[in-house]
Design a protein around this nucleic acid. Sequence first.
DNA 1: GACTATCCGGGATGGCCGTCCCGGTTGTCA
DNA 2: TGACAACCGGGACGGCCATCCCGGATAGTC
Lengths: 184, 184
Amino acid sequence: MRADAERNRARILDTAIAAFAAEGLGVSVQEIARRAGVGTGTVSRHFPTKDALFEAIVASRVGRIVDRVQDLAELPDQQGAFVEFLTILTEEGAANVGIAQAFAGAGYDMDAAAAAVGYDFDAAMAAALHRAQDAHVVRADADVADIKALMVSCMSRGSADQATRARMIDIVARGLRPPESAGG
Amino acid sequence: MRADAERNRARILDTAIAAFAAEGLGVSVQEIARRAGVGTGTVSRHFPTKDALFEAIVASRVGRIVDRVQDLAELPDQQGAFVEFLTILTEEGAANVGIAQAFAGAGYDMDAAAAAVGYDFDAAMAAALHRAQDAHVVRADADVADIKALMVSCMSRGSADQATRARMIDIVARGLRPPESAGG
DNA sequence: GACTATCCGGGATGGCCGTCCCGGTTGTCA
DNA sequence: TGACAACCGGGACGGCCATCCCGGATAGTC
Protein backbone atom coordinates (compact mmCIF):
# COMPACT_ATOMS: atom_id res chain seq x y z
CA MET A 1 0.00 0.00 0.00
CA ARG A 2 1.35 3.37 -1.01
CA ALA A 3 2.14 5.84 1.76
CA ASP A 4 -0.28 8.52 0.50
CA ALA A 5 -3.06 5.96 0.26
CA GLU A 6 -2.58 4.92 3.84
CA ARG A 7 -2.45 8.56 4.95
CA ASN A 8 -5.69 9.33 3.18
CA ARG A 9 -7.36 6.27 4.59
CA ALA A 10 -6.49 7.34 8.11
CA ARG A 11 -7.71 10.89 7.49
CA ILE A 12 -11.02 9.64 6.11
CA LEU A 13 -11.46 7.27 9.04
CA ASP A 14 -10.78 9.97 11.62
CA THR A 15 -13.05 12.41 9.84
CA ALA A 16 -15.88 9.91 9.57
CA ILE A 17 -15.63 8.90 13.22
CA ALA A 18 -15.66 12.52 14.34
CA ALA A 19 -18.53 13.48 12.02
CA PHE A 20 -20.73 10.54 12.97
CA ALA A 21 -19.98 11.10 16.65
CA ALA A 22 -20.81 14.79 16.54
CA GLU A 23 -23.68 14.88 14.06
CA GLY A 24 -24.95 11.36 13.58
CA LEU A 25 -25.12 8.92 10.73
CA GLY A 26 -26.90 11.36 8.43
CA VAL A 27 -23.67 13.05 7.39
CA SER A 28 -23.18 12.31 3.70
CA VAL A 29 -20.18 10.54 2.24
CA GLN A 30 -19.45 13.60 0.10
CA GLU A 31 -19.37 15.79 3.19
CA ILE A 32 -16.92 13.44 4.86
CA ALA A 33 -14.76 13.54 1.73
CA ARG A 34 -14.87 17.32 1.74
CA ARG A 35 -13.92 17.56 5.41
CA ALA A 36 -11.12 15.05 4.98
CA GLY A 37 -9.80 17.08 2.04
CA VAL A 38 -10.10 14.24 -0.47
CA GLY A 39 -12.35 13.39 -3.42
CA THR A 40 -15.42 11.23 -3.12
CA GLY A 41 -13.72 8.55 -5.18
CA THR A 42 -10.96 8.26 -2.63
CA VAL A 43 -13.50 7.60 0.09
CA SER A 44 -15.41 4.98 -1.82
CA ARG A 45 -12.23 3.18 -2.82
CA HIS A 46 -11.10 2.77 0.76
CA PHE A 47 -14.63 2.21 2.06
CA PRO A 48 -16.77 0.81 -0.76
CA THR A 49 -20.08 1.53 0.98
CA LYS A 50 -21.31 3.83 3.68
CA ASP A 51 -21.85 0.78 5.86
CA ALA A 52 -18.09 0.30 5.90
CA LEU A 53 -17.71 3.82 7.28
CA PHE A 54 -20.45 3.12 9.78
CA GLU A 55 -18.51 0.08 10.93
CA ALA A 56 -15.63 2.39 11.64
CA ILE A 57 -17.58 4.34 14.21
CA VAL A 58 -18.85 1.16 15.82
CA ALA A 59 -15.38 -0.32 15.89
CA SER A 60 -14.00 2.84 17.45
CA ARG A 61 -16.39 2.65 20.38
CA VAL A 62 -18.03 -0.69 20.82
CA GLY A 63 -14.86 -2.44 21.89
CA ARG A 64 -14.42 0.01 24.72
CA ILE A 65 -18.05 -0.30 25.72
CA VAL A 66 -17.97 -4.09 25.76
CA ASP A 67 -14.75 -4.12 27.75
CA ARG A 68 -16.12 -1.70 30.31
CA VAL A 69 -19.34 -3.66 30.63
CA GLN A 70 -17.49 -6.92 31.09
CA ASP A 71 -15.27 -5.38 33.77
CA LEU A 72 -18.39 -4.74 35.84
CA ALA A 73 -18.66 -8.46 36.51
CA GLU A 74 -15.77 -8.09 38.99
CA LEU A 75 -17.59 -5.62 41.23
CA PRO A 76 -18.92 -7.01 44.52
CA ASP A 77 -21.83 -4.54 44.57
CA GLN A 78 -24.07 -5.75 41.75
CA GLN A 79 -26.69 -3.06 42.39
CA GLY A 80 -24.03 -0.42 41.79
CA ALA A 81 -22.64 -2.42 38.90
CA PHE A 82 -25.97 -2.45 37.13
CA VAL A 83 -26.43 1.30 37.53
CA GLU A 84 -22.91 1.72 36.22
CA PHE A 85 -23.83 -0.48 33.26
CA LEU A 86 -26.74 1.80 32.41
CA THR A 87 -24.52 4.83 32.92
CA ILE A 88 -21.85 3.53 30.58
CA LEU A 89 -24.34 2.98 27.78
CA THR A 90 -26.05 6.32 28.35
CA GLU A 91 -22.84 8.32 28.49
CA GLU A 92 -21.42 6.60 25.43
CA GLY A 93 -24.60 7.38 23.55
CA ALA A 94 -24.65 10.95 24.82
CA ALA A 95 -21.06 11.44 23.72
CA ASN A 96 -21.62 9.90 20.33
CA VAL A 97 -24.70 10.72 18.31
CA GLY A 98 -23.92 7.99 15.80
CA ILE A 99 -23.78 5.33 18.49
CA ALA A 100 -27.08 6.55 19.90
CA GLN A 101 -28.71 6.44 16.46
CA ALA A 102 -27.33 3.00 15.73
CA PHE A 103 -28.64 1.88 19.10
CA ALA A 104 -32.06 3.23 18.22
CA GLY A 105 -31.93 1.16 15.04
CA ALA A 106 -31.61 3.96 12.50
CA GLY A 107 -31.08 1.77 9.46
CA TYR A 108 -27.85 0.19 10.60
CA ASP A 109 -27.32 -3.12 12.32
CA MET A 110 -25.12 -2.42 15.30
CA ASP A 111 -24.81 -6.03 16.36
CA ALA A 112 -23.64 -7.03 12.90
CA ALA A 113 -21.12 -4.20 12.77
CA ALA A 114 -19.85 -5.13 16.22
CA ALA A 115 -19.53 -8.75 15.15
CA ALA A 116 -17.56 -7.64 12.11
CA VAL A 117 -14.90 -6.17 14.39
CA GLY A 118 -14.88 -9.18 16.70
CA TYR A 119 -17.22 -8.15 19.49
CA ASP A 120 -20.48 -9.76 20.56
CA PHE A 121 -22.35 -6.73 21.77
CA ASP A 122 -25.58 -8.55 22.35
CA ALA A 123 -23.90 -11.22 24.46
CA ALA A 124 -22.20 -8.58 26.59
CA MET A 125 -25.52 -6.91 27.24
CA ALA A 126 -27.18 -10.22 28.01
CA ALA A 127 -24.40 -11.19 30.40
CA ALA A 128 -24.67 -7.91 32.30
CA LEU A 129 -28.42 -8.30 32.55
CA HIS A 130 -28.24 -11.89 33.73
CA ARG A 131 -25.65 -11.06 36.36
CA ALA A 132 -27.98 -8.39 37.71
CA GLN A 133 -30.90 -10.77 37.63
CA ASP A 134 -28.95 -13.53 39.39
CA ALA A 135 -28.07 -11.01 42.11
CA HIS A 136 -31.78 -10.13 42.39
CA VAL A 137 -31.01 -6.54 41.44
CA VAL A 138 -33.15 -6.61 38.31
CA ARG A 139 -36.57 -8.16 37.87
CA ALA A 140 -36.42 -11.60 36.26
CA ASP A 141 -38.93 -10.90 33.51
CA ALA A 142 -36.90 -8.13 31.87
CA ASP A 143 -35.11 -9.10 28.68
CA VAL A 144 -32.28 -7.61 26.64
CA ALA A 145 -34.67 -5.92 24.24
CA ASP A 146 -36.29 -4.12 27.18
CA ILE A 147 -32.93 -2.81 28.29
CA LYS A 148 -32.03 -1.72 24.78
CA ALA A 149 -35.32 0.12 24.36
CA LEU A 150 -34.92 1.88 27.69
CA MET A 151 -31.35 2.82 26.87
CA VAL A 152 -32.60 4.59 23.75
CA SER A 153 -34.63 6.84 26.04
CA CYS A 154 -31.64 7.65 28.19
CA MET A 155 -29.41 8.28 25.19
CA SER A 156 -32.01 10.51 23.59
CA ARG A 157 -31.52 12.94 26.46
CA GLY A 158 -27.83 13.02 25.61
CA SER A 159 -27.95 16.68 24.66
CA ALA A 160 -29.45 17.59 28.04
CA ASP A 161 -27.32 18.23 31.09
CA GLN A 162 -25.66 15.58 33.17
CA ALA A 163 -28.25 15.79 35.95
CA THR A 164 -31.00 14.95 33.47
CA ARG A 165 -29.13 11.91 32.22
CA ALA A 166 -28.55 10.78 35.81
CA ARG A 167 -32.24 11.21 36.55
CA MET A 168 -33.19 9.11 33.53
CA ILE A 169 -30.81 6.39 34.62
CA ASP A 170 -32.27 6.49 38.11
CA ILE A 171 -35.80 6.16 36.75
CA VAL A 172 -34.86 3.20 34.58
CA ALA A 173 -32.83 1.50 37.31
CA ARG A 174 -35.69 1.83 39.81
CA GLY A 175 -38.18 0.58 37.28
CA LEU A 176 -36.09 -2.49 36.65
CA ARG A 177 -35.82 -3.49 40.31
CA PRO A 178 -37.56 -6.69 41.31
CA PRO A 179 -41.13 -5.78 42.35
CA GLU A 180 -40.78 -7.37 45.78
CA SER A 181 -37.83 -5.23 46.86
CA ALA A 182 -38.58 -2.05 48.79
CA GLY A 183 -37.91 1.31 47.20
CA GLY A 184 -35.61 4.08 48.43
CA MET B 1 -65.50 22.08 -5.18
CA ARG B 2 -66.35 19.50 -7.78
CA ALA B 3 -67.71 16.16 -6.63
CA ASP B 4 -64.85 14.10 -8.11
CA ALA B 5 -62.32 16.38 -6.48
CA GLU B 6 -63.84 15.87 -3.08
CA ARG B 7 -64.02 12.13 -3.65
CA ASN B 8 -60.35 11.99 -4.57
CA ARG B 9 -59.37 14.10 -1.61
CA ALA B 10 -61.11 11.71 0.77
CA ARG B 11 -59.51 8.67 -0.88
CA ILE B 12 -56.06 10.21 -0.62
CA LEU B 13 -56.61 11.12 3.01
CA ASP B 14 -57.81 7.64 3.95
CA THR B 15 -54.97 6.03 2.05
CA ALA B 16 -52.35 8.27 3.66
CA ILE B 17 -53.68 7.69 7.16
CA ALA B 18 -53.73 3.94 6.66
CA ALA B 19 -50.28 3.85 5.05
CA PHE B 20 -48.63 6.00 7.71
CA ALA B 21 -50.32 4.03 10.47
CA ALA B 22 -49.27 0.66 9.09
CA GLU B 23 -45.81 1.43 7.70
CA GLY B 24 -44.71 4.75 9.09
CA LEU B 25 -43.89 8.14 7.68
CA GLY B 26 -41.39 6.74 5.18
CA VAL B 27 -44.09 5.82 2.67
CA SER B 28 -43.56 8.06 -0.36
CA VAL B 29 -46.14 10.45 -1.74
CA GLN B 30 -46.05 8.61 -5.06
CA GLU B 31 -46.83 5.35 -3.30
CA ILE B 32 -49.81 6.93 -1.58
CA ALA B 33 -50.99 8.26 -4.95
CA ARG B 34 -50.63 4.79 -6.46
CA ARG B 35 -52.58 3.12 -3.67
CA ALA B 36 -55.29 5.75 -3.80
CA GLY B 37 -55.58 5.19 -7.54
CA VAL B 38 -54.77 8.78 -8.49
CA GLY B 39 -51.86 10.62 -10.05
CA THR B 40 -49.15 12.29 -8.01
CA GLY B 41 -50.36 15.69 -9.20
CA THR B 42 -53.75 15.07 -7.67
CA VAL B 43 -52.15 14.39 -4.33
CA SER B 44 -49.96 17.46 -4.35
CA ARG B 45 -52.84 19.68 -5.39
CA HIS B 46 -54.96 18.64 -2.43
CA PHE B 47 -51.97 18.41 -0.08
CA PRO B 48 -49.23 20.74 -1.33
CA THR B 49 -46.51 19.19 0.83
CA LYS B 50 -45.91 15.91 2.57
CA ASP B 51 -46.19 17.75 5.87
CA ALA B 52 -49.84 18.38 5.06
CA LEU B 53 -50.35 14.63 4.70
CA PHE B 54 -48.46 14.07 7.91
CA GLU B 55 -50.82 16.47 9.61
CA ALA B 56 -53.64 14.23 8.48
CA ILE B 57 -52.35 11.29 10.46
CA VAL B 58 -51.78 13.45 13.52
CA ALA B 59 -55.24 14.96 13.22
CA SER B 60 -56.78 11.50 12.90
CA ARG B 61 -55.30 10.36 16.21
CA VAL B 62 -54.05 13.12 18.39
CA GLY B 63 -57.50 14.46 19.14
CA ARG B 64 -58.58 11.10 20.49
CA ILE B 65 -55.38 10.77 22.49
CA VAL B 66 -55.69 14.21 24.04
CA ASP B 67 -59.35 13.62 24.88
CA ARG B 68 -58.61 10.26 26.50
CA VAL B 69 -55.72 11.73 28.48
CA GLN B 70 -57.84 14.63 29.69
CA ASP B 71 -60.61 12.26 30.77
CA LEU B 72 -58.17 10.64 33.19
CA ALA B 73 -58.33 13.75 35.36
CA GLU B 74 -61.77 12.56 36.53
CA LEU B 75 -60.51 9.29 37.99
CA PRO B 76 -60.24 9.12 41.78
CA ASP B 77 -57.31 6.67 41.64
CA GLN B 78 -54.47 8.80 40.32
CA GLN B 79 -51.97 5.94 40.52
CA GLY B 80 -54.17 3.94 38.18
CA ALA B 81 -54.81 7.02 36.08
CA PHE B 82 -51.12 7.56 35.49
CA VAL B 83 -50.57 3.96 34.45
CA GLU B 84 -53.54 4.33 32.14
CA PHE B 85 -51.96 7.48 30.73
CA LEU B 86 -48.80 5.57 29.90
CA THR B 87 -50.88 2.75 28.48
CA ILE B 88 -52.86 5.06 26.20
CA LEU B 89 -49.72 6.55 24.71
CA THR B 90 -48.05 3.17 24.32
CA GLU B 91 -51.04 1.49 22.72
CA GLU B 92 -51.66 4.40 20.37
CA GLY B 93 -48.03 4.29 19.32
CA ALA B 94 -48.13 0.52 18.95
CA ALA B 95 -51.24 0.74 16.79
CA ASN B 96 -49.84 3.52 14.63
CA VAL B 97 -46.29 3.39 13.39
CA GLY B 98 -46.48 6.95 12.13
CA ILE B 99 -47.53 8.29 15.52
CA ALA B 100 -44.69 6.39 17.16
CA GLN B 101 -42.18 7.79 14.67
CA ALA B 102 -43.52 11.31 15.07
CA PHE B 103 -43.27 10.86 18.82
CA ALA B 104 -39.67 9.78 18.47
CA GLY B 105 -39.02 12.96 16.51
CA ALA B 106 -38.46 11.48 13.07
CA GLY B 107 -38.22 14.74 11.19
CA TYR B 108 -41.73 15.94 11.89
CA ASP B 109 -42.93 18.27 14.60
CA MET B 110 -45.83 16.53 16.28
CA ASP B 111 -46.66 19.42 18.60
CA ALA B 112 -46.87 21.83 15.67
CA ALA B 113 -49.08 19.46 13.70
CA ALA B 114 -51.32 18.95 16.71
CA ALA B 115 -51.56 22.69 17.19
CA ALA B 116 -52.53 23.07 13.53
CA VAL B 117 -55.61 20.94 14.16
CA GLY B 118 -56.47 22.72 17.40
CA TYR B 119 -54.93 20.49 20.05
CA ASP B 120 -52.21 21.33 22.54
CA PHE B 121 -50.56 17.97 22.90
CA ASP B 122 -47.74 19.19 25.06
CA ALA B 123 -50.11 20.87 27.49
CA ALA B 124 -52.17 17.69 27.80
CA MET B 125 -49.05 15.69 28.63
CA ALA B 126 -47.88 18.30 31.10
CA ALA B 127 -51.30 18.37 32.79
CA ALA B 128 -51.36 14.60 33.18
CA LEU B 129 -47.86 14.62 34.61
CA HIS B 130 -48.59 17.41 37.06
CA ARG B 131 -51.75 15.75 38.27
CA ALA B 132 -49.75 12.61 38.99
CA GLN B 133 -47.06 14.63 40.73
CA ASP B 134 -49.60 16.53 42.85
CA ALA B 135 -51.04 13.18 43.92
CA HIS B 136 -47.51 12.03 44.84
CA VAL B 137 -47.79 9.21 42.35
CA VAL B 138 -44.84 10.40 40.27
CA ARG B 139 -41.54 11.81 41.48
CA ALA B 140 -41.46 15.58 41.47
CA ASP B 141 -38.23 15.94 39.51
CA ALA B 142 -39.54 14.22 36.37
CA ASP B 143 -40.42 16.52 33.48
CA VAL B 144 -42.45 16.17 30.31
CA ALA B 145 -39.37 15.47 28.21
CA ASP B 146 -38.55 12.53 30.49
CA ILE B 147 -42.01 11.08 29.95
CA LYS B 148 -41.82 11.58 26.21
CA ALA B 149 -38.44 9.88 26.03
CA LEU B 150 -39.65 6.93 28.09
CA MET B 151 -42.77 6.62 25.97
CA VAL B 152 -40.59 6.24 22.90
CA SER B 153 -39.14 3.13 24.53
CA CYS B 154 -42.56 1.68 25.21
CA MET B 155 -43.82 2.47 21.73
CA SER B 156 -40.74 0.94 20.16
CA ARG B 157 -41.86 -2.40 21.53
CA GLY B 158 -45.14 -1.91 19.74
CA SER B 159 -44.54 -4.85 17.42
CA ALA B 160 -44.01 -7.14 20.38
CA ASP B 161 -46.85 -8.89 22.19
CA GLN B 162 -49.21 -7.20 24.61
CA ALA B 163 -47.47 -8.71 27.66
CA THR B 164 -44.21 -7.09 26.62
CA ARG B 165 -45.84 -3.70 26.25
CA ALA B 166 -47.47 -4.10 29.67
CA ARG B 167 -44.12 -5.02 31.20
CA MET B 168 -42.49 -1.93 29.68
CA ILE B 169 -45.24 0.26 31.08
CA ASP B 170 -44.82 -1.36 34.47
CA ILE B 171 -41.08 -0.74 34.43
CA VAL B 172 -41.55 2.91 33.51
CA ALA B 173 -44.37 3.48 35.99
CA ARG B 174 -42.33 1.97 38.83
CA GLY B 175 -39.30 3.98 37.87
CA LEU B 176 -41.30 7.17 37.97
CA ARG B 177 -42.67 6.59 41.48
CA PRO B 178 -41.48 8.97 44.16
CA PRO B 179 -38.30 7.50 45.70
CA GLU B 180 -39.71 7.53 49.26
CA SER B 181 -42.71 5.34 48.45
CA ALA B 182 -42.37 1.61 49.03
CA GLY B 183 -42.39 -0.78 46.07
CA GLY B 184 -44.78 -3.63 45.32
C1' DG C 1 16.00 10.92 -13.53
C1' DA C 2 12.72 8.07 -15.81
C1' DC C 3 9.24 4.57 -15.75
C1' DT C 4 5.17 2.20 -14.14
C1' DA C 5 1.85 0.53 -11.02
C1' DT C 6 -0.91 2.73 -7.94
C1' DC C 7 -3.82 6.14 -6.41
C1' DC C 8 -6.34 10.60 -6.68
C1' DG C 9 -10.05 13.96 -7.94
C1' DG C 10 -14.42 14.95 -9.03
C1' DG C 11 -17.73 14.47 -12.59
C1' DA C 12 -21.05 10.90 -14.29
C1' DT C 13 -24.64 7.72 -13.27
C1' DG C 14 -28.79 5.98 -11.45
C1' DG C 15 -32.14 5.95 -7.85
C1' DC C 16 -35.46 8.05 -4.90
C1' DC C 17 -37.71 11.84 -3.35
C1' DG C 18 -41.12 16.00 -3.19
C1' DT C 19 -43.01 19.41 -6.00
C1' DC C 20 -44.57 21.72 -10.29
C1' DC C 21 -46.73 22.03 -14.65
C1' DC C 22 -49.32 21.20 -18.94
C1' DG C 23 -52.17 18.72 -22.31
C1' DG C 24 -56.25 16.23 -22.05
C1' DT C 25 -60.56 15.04 -19.69
C1' DT C 26 -64.67 15.46 -17.03
C1' DG C 27 -68.21 17.40 -14.14
C1' DT C 28 -71.42 21.14 -13.94
C1' DC C 29 -74.65 24.46 -15.25
C1' DA C 30 -76.95 27.21 -18.52
C1' DT D 1 -76.63 19.37 -25.30
C1' DG D 2 -72.95 22.44 -25.56
C1' DA D 3 -69.37 25.11 -23.53
C1' DC D 4 -66.33 26.29 -20.03
C1' DA D 5 -64.12 26.08 -15.78
C1' DA D 6 -62.29 22.88 -12.74
C1' DC D 7 -59.72 18.98 -12.28
C1' DC D 8 -56.89 14.85 -13.47
C1' DG D 9 -52.73 12.08 -14.81
C1' DG D 10 -48.22 11.45 -14.96
C1' DG D 11 -44.06 13.14 -16.84
C1' DA D 12 -40.60 16.95 -15.91
C1' DC D 13 -37.65 19.12 -12.82
C1' DG D 14 -34.31 19.87 -9.28
C1' DG D 15 -32.15 18.19 -5.14
C1' DC D 16 -29.75 14.84 -2.53
C1' DC D 17 -27.58 10.64 -2.10
C1' DA D 18 -24.25 6.49 -2.69
C1' DT D 19 -21.50 4.42 -5.93
C1' DC D 20 -18.66 3.93 -10.20
C1' DC D 21 -15.32 5.31 -13.50
C1' DC D 22 -11.52 7.45 -16.07
C1' DG D 23 -8.02 10.86 -17.29
C1' DG D 24 -4.35 12.78 -14.90
C1' DA D 25 -1.01 12.95 -11.12
C1' DT D 26 2.32 10.83 -8.10
C1' DA D 27 4.94 7.72 -5.13
C1' DG D 28 8.14 4.11 -5.25
C1' DT D 29 11.78 1.71 -7.71
C1' DC D 30 15.53 0.76 -10.74
